[in-house]
Design a binder for these strands. Structure first.
Length: 591
DNA sequence: GCCGTTTTCGGCCCGACTGTTTTCAGTCG
């Protein structure tokens, strides 16, 4: 092996998410150091910008490093650091900072109530540089000697350290579907109070982010005199474990499942402004408020105010946007990806539930589903669909009672029979299968059997032992047979367990484009792994996107809602969605 | 460190809650 190859192997090509994380860490270290706050913000902006990027930084650097400067939030300094990270696999500035900042200090920042100033103080005055040492110091009552740390601070720290450890075990974020269930329950509970006029949830859940950090709920009352009553009632919700803080307008609790919930109470004339404010994203709001400022206006959670501090908008979100000269936009778009003032300020017309004509991934009792072919079809008709595809597991997934050739052939006949029955209702069931790409390098069935199917969904099932390069290779091999119509969960990973590698996704998408394979946005609550950025990557390549429920019961069909919203976050339009096609158009695409 | 329809310097979003203060800094979202 030549030296060149050895070096390439050692230097692991830096991925977008890793680079974003390095900039976040740099920002944390600069905060502890007490650096200029705007410099710190620049690093955080750059990190956020990189996270939402639909292309790899590696591909930009390879093409032309100067194009890095076109990315919002990235200038000369950070651009150079990205180039160094991509080509050399390291960042000198980052390494220098690391030398002067003990790693444990960064962990300590994760403890609620401890910010950079206090961490720096504890480190300087008491030499504490890890969560473990901090825990011991609190136990030994050593912290109370420090300025600003009285008895109450220590008491709070003990709790905060315990919470930190628990939250770390759950990686700090929760699945969208779980968060949705919890928030609806709390909203039901709060609406029983007659003082509550309006109630809705905001935050990343309203933006339908794939994972949720905490819940934000907003309530409006006729008079702020009622707010205390609302807060008292809220903290008595039976899921509440701890009350973190409680005031007239803002209360924060931690639920028994360690989820944090913020409740805000505002007057009715401010409800829209508060919804806008707390829906975010933070980056979207910063740009929005800057735009307002340029027009001599001020935006906060109570409304839009003119130079004389008169409120000119605030009751509804629409009027808040309008007052600043922006058309209201759906929360999924509010990520500062150019939706406010970018070159493409013309917003896309996004896919909607009403556009969906069918669902191309579901299971029946033949493998691990709970309902029959007919039951699934009837439920789909109730949703107004024209067609579905039955795609039971192949024999590769033994635990799911996957079908071998013989059982698949019988399954096909069964589907034919149901199709015959539903003919007069003009409903069509496509004969399909979900094959597993990683199993043995084949597509689980021979070519003759696969050609009897209308549609083949190829899935990459979780395999934590397989190297990313090997996964890419197997996917490429499978797609190049020309027998696959849809590629499902190409990362093979479940959310929160491991992030997919951007380079892997880029190669897979290029391959899918070459063989005209659609990418699936999977709505199964445990998955949702084709993320917003992946949808953008797919659309950039002209790929069709299949938004599927992957339901294992008739009750699971409406879960497609989650996939639709994730696709909307990725600016997916109706034209890109495979299952927005009519049944005739779909068959035309398949052949 | 980034940015520009007040442009190459001088800005950079806004407010609630807490604890320990004696009027506010730190943290958080």
């Amino acid at each position: 092996m030549s030296t060149k190859f050895i070096i390439y192997d050692i230097i692991h090509a830096m991925e977008n998410l890793e680079i974003a994380e390095i900039f976040e860490t740099i920002a944390d270290m600069l905060e502890i150091k007490g650096e200029n706050v705007f410099k710190i913000r620049s690093y955080r902006n750059a990190a956020a910008s990189i996270e939402g990027l639909p292309v790899t930084l590696k591909s930009i650097v390879e093409k032309n490093p100067k194009e890095l400067l076109d990315i919002p939030g990235i200038g000369k300094g950070i651009g150079e650091k990205i180039e160094e990270l991509v080509t050399k696999g390291k960042c000198t500035y980052f390494n220098e900072l690391k030398k002067e900042t003990p790693a444990g200090l960064l962990d300590m920042l994760g403890i609620s109530g401890l910010g950079p100033k206090k961490v720096a103080l504890i480190y300087k005055e008491a030499g504490i540089d890890s969560v473990a040492k901090l825990e011991k110091a609190v136990d030994d009552k050593k912290l109370s000697k420090l300025p600003g740390f009285a008895a109450k601070s220590e008491e709070k720290l003990i709790k905060a350290i315990a919470d930190y450890k628990k939250l770390k075990a759950t990686a700090g974020r929760f699945r969208l579907s779980m968060a949705k269930g919890v928030v609806e329950d709390i909203k039901d509970y709060l609406s029983e109070l007659k003082e509550v006029k309006n109630i809705d949830h905001a935050g990343s859940l309203r933006r339908w982010k794939e994972t949720i950090g905490d819940l934000d709920i907003l309530v409006s009352c006729k008079s702020m005199n009622d707010s205390e009553k609302v807060m008292d009632y809220f903290v008595n919700y039976n899921g509440v474990k701890d009350i973190s803080l409680k005031g007239d307008t803002k209360t924060t609790v931690v639920l028994k499942n360690n989820m944090q919930v913020d409740l805000r109470v505002v007057e009715e004339k401010s409800f829209g402004a508060a919804m806008q404010y707390f829906t975010g994203s933070k980056e979207h709001n910063v740009v929005f408020r800057e735009m307002a400022k340029k027009k001599g206006l001020k935006v906060n959670e109570y409304g839009v105010f003119d130079s004389k501090d008169n409120q000119i908008a605030g009751k509804t979100e629409e009027e808040v946007y309008k007052a600043v000269g922006v058309k209201w936009m759906t929360p999924e778009l509010r990520e500062n990806r150019g939706e406010l003032n970018g070159k493409n300020a013309k917003l896309p017309s996004l896919i909607e539930m009403a556009h969906i004509k069918g669902d191309l991934h579901m299971h029946t009792t033949a493998s691990d589903g709970a309902n029959t072919i007919m039951e699934m079809a009837e439920s789909a008709m109730k949703l107004g669909y024209e067609y579905i595809a039955i795609t039971d597991h192949s024999k590769a997934v033994g635990v799911a009672h996957g079908l071998d050739e013989k059982r698949l052939l019988k399954h096909i006949k069964d589907i034919d029979a149901v199709n015959e029955e539903l003919k007069k209702k003009k409903f069509r069931i496509l004969k399909g299968a979900e094959v597993d790409i990683l199993s043995d390098g084949s597509l689980d069935y021979d070519k003759k059997t696969l050609e009897k199917l209308d549609i083949v969904v190829a899935a990459v099932h979780s395999n934590f032992n397989m190297k990313e390069e090997d996964m890419t290779e197997r996917i490429t091999k499978a797609l190049s047979t020309g027998l696959v119509n849809i590629l499902a969960h190409p990362t093979g990973r479940l959310i929160n367990q491991r992030e997919p590698y951007a380079v892997h996704m880029e190669k897979v998408m290029d391959c899918a484009a070459k063989y005209n394979v659609a990418m699936e946005v999977n709505s199964y609550p445990e998955r949702l792994d084709l993320k917003d950025t992946h949808c953008m990557m797919a659309q950039d390549r002209g790929l069709k996107i299949s938004i599927a429920s992957d339901s294992h019961s008739k009750a699971g069909l409406p879960n497609i809602e989650y996939g639709i919203h994730v696709a909307r976050r990725g600016w997916v339009t109706k034209d890109s969605v495979l299952n927005a096609l009519s049944v005739d158009e779909l068959f035309k695409w398949l052949t």
